[in-house]
Design a protein around this nucleic acid. Structure first.
Lengths: 337, 337
DNA sequence: CCCTGGCACTCGACCGTCCCGAGTGCCAAT
DNA sequence: ATTGGCACTCGGGACGGTCGAGTGCCAGGG
């Protein structure tokens, strides 16, 4: 029911609208893209496309603009993924290779994506849940206060203060630290909860109040850190794509970690490149934006997601190319360090 | 040369313009504020004020708007600092009291300031330089890699990976850790550089390559971390105050840590409440914005600065009140923890 | 000397009108 | 199925007139 040519017409409309930001008419279509038919034919095709809901005209007797459904079809069946240029690949490589830190990797990735796509970049920290313990450290701050440092194999470091019910001596802190490391080292974070449960029974009753304080903080870190961090960058790019009124709404959404998690969290276990267009995404304030995202991680399991957010009228092929490439490189960097 | 009434007129102009965002004329002034003179008199005063550069008219035969110089005079001599309401004080207190972490304090402070003033909030992390060492921790990750954790008395935790030239055993790591803590504990960070210099001589020659690697990372952390972190929040509030074209510029500036440091760094050792208006501030992209900032810290020394950034036409008395109050509370929280 | 009322003037904002042109839908012809 | 022709629609820009807020100036009065 949708002709090859009609698809081509839709593709052309999307491309023209993305680059000019103006409704596109039958005349301008035929000479910009060398379709070998007359404007009248295009008009007929357009009428069909409109009837099916892929495009619409903002006012009578104006050009057409794609609807969300139109972009969806464009992404799924018409456009490809535009690979990066060699120069861009090299830029990514050198820029990311300079990172010395997980924080630094994430920060650089955000900047990179934002600059590459001229959109807003969002990068989620590698999920705690999917990684494993590399080391647990307990540092006495005062006699009634410890600092708990949890280091994962992805290089992420979580630190939390622990308030102790009883004063404690350095020797028993060392003991607890040794115990924790012996028990947790190398284990998946998902196992930690049960392991700690078993551990609790083996503590001398005198030390038990303090130990349980530490344990509960560890558990808190794991549960509550379901609110994983998402870093945003390149918000300035929103100013260029004028959402006249919606801009405030979008900026507000971008400042809410919870909202960002919901946005990215939709398909967290998929490694795949995903596009959420306009109203498809779960956040109300972002109904006029699209998200192109991909999972990244070491090997084949996805640790987290990253992507770019822009107006629905964004350059999908380019954005998809950039996101896919960056996700791969970040995965390599993480695996290599 | 500037009459009491002329000052009052300027004040009234600023207030009206801030609240209505429209040029204000002589007529509307006299009945909004009950000045007991005729519009004609006001007009004469306005002519003088304009001649002196405190106000200007955007087009002939329109109302007047304040210049940067006008706002400056307003802040310095006319307006006071508007104290917060009781409800606001309580809100600050309860909101900040819930923080369990330095990161959390900073995050909450940013949100608080942004919400209180409906402007963009900027909060600088407590300066490393001005704080002292509470603990140094070395954690072996592999035999050729350590994690260095540096904890300060303000609760700030810096972590850095150290690549070692030679493989190392746990025992010698423990030794080095003990040595570092014995030497550095409780010392001001400013002294650390010299202390480490002395320490280097006391190392067995076999361990020296590894030790110097650790030392150099410590020193790096101190020097390079002159780029202190600044956290920004409430950027959505910029959308309300329409900088039609400048918005992109402003958002870009807010994403550059270096720029923010320059902005706040102007007067870092002053505890005082400071207002930088329009072109007074050192950042080119922020020529149409003002910054109200104050130092905060424990006791009488300022650890860092926090403040709000908004269009030059902002409500200075309220902003100043909020910034001053929040700075005080944050200082208390930091001292108390 | 400072304030005031009056007056002529300016100019931006608003509104209605008009016109143009891009773009459409429909239809008959190929 | 495609095409050329044709009448139609409607948004946007140009033009012009009115309105009113606001100004500067000046002469008169406390």
């Amino acid at each position: 029911m949708l002709d090859d040519r009609k698809l081509a017409v839709l593709g052309a409309i999307v491309e023209d609208f993305v680059s000019t930001m103006e409704p596109v008419g039958s005349k301008s279509l035929v000479d910009r893209h060398h379709l070998d038919v007359s404007p009248a034919t295009i008009r007929n095709d357009m009428a069909v496309l409109e009837e099916q809901g892929y495009i619409l005209q903002p006012h009578t007797s104006a050009g057409r603009i794609p609807t969300d459904k139109g972009y969806r079809l464009f992404v799924d069946r018409i456009s490809g993924i535009k690979p990066l240029t060699g120069a861009e690949r090299r830029a990514i490589e050198t820029f990311l290779a300079g990172a010395y830190d997980l924080d630094d990797v994430v920060m650089r990735t955000v900047r990179l994506l934002a600059q590459l796509t001229r959109q807003v970049a969002v990068v989620q920290y590698p999920s705690l849940i999917r990684s494993s313990v590399r080391h647990v450290e307990l540092v006495p701050l005062t006699t009634k206060r410890l600092l708990l440092v949890l280091i994962t194999d992805t290089g992420r470091v979580e630190q939390r203060a622990v308030e102790l019910p009883d004063p404690v001596e350095d020797s028993s802190v060392a003991e607890l630290r040794a115990l924790l490391n012996a028990c947790l080292d190398g284990k998946q974070l998902t196992e930690v909860a049960t392991l700690i449960g078993e551990l609790a029974d083996r503590i001398h009753s005198a030390d038990r109040p303090n130990a349980t304080a530490v344990f509960s903080v560890i558990l808190e870190s794991l549960v509550e850190r379901n609110e994983e961090r998402v870093v945003v960058g390149g918000a300035a790019n929103l100013a260029a794509a004028d959402f006249s009124r919606g801009l405030r709404e979008v900026l507000e959404s971008l400042e809410e970690q919870v909202v960002l998690m919901r946005l990215l969290g939709e398909s967290v276990d998929e490694q795949a490149l995903t596009v959420q267009i306009g109203a498809e995404n779960p956040v109300a304030g972002l109904r006029s934006t699209s998200l192109v995202s991909a999972g990244y991680g070491t090997g084949d399991r996805a640790l987290a997601r990253l992507g770019v957010l822009g107006p629905t009228r964004m350059d999908y092929p380019t954005a998809m190319g950039a996101v896919r490439a960056v996700a791969r490189y970040v995965g390599q960097i993480l695996a290599g360090s």
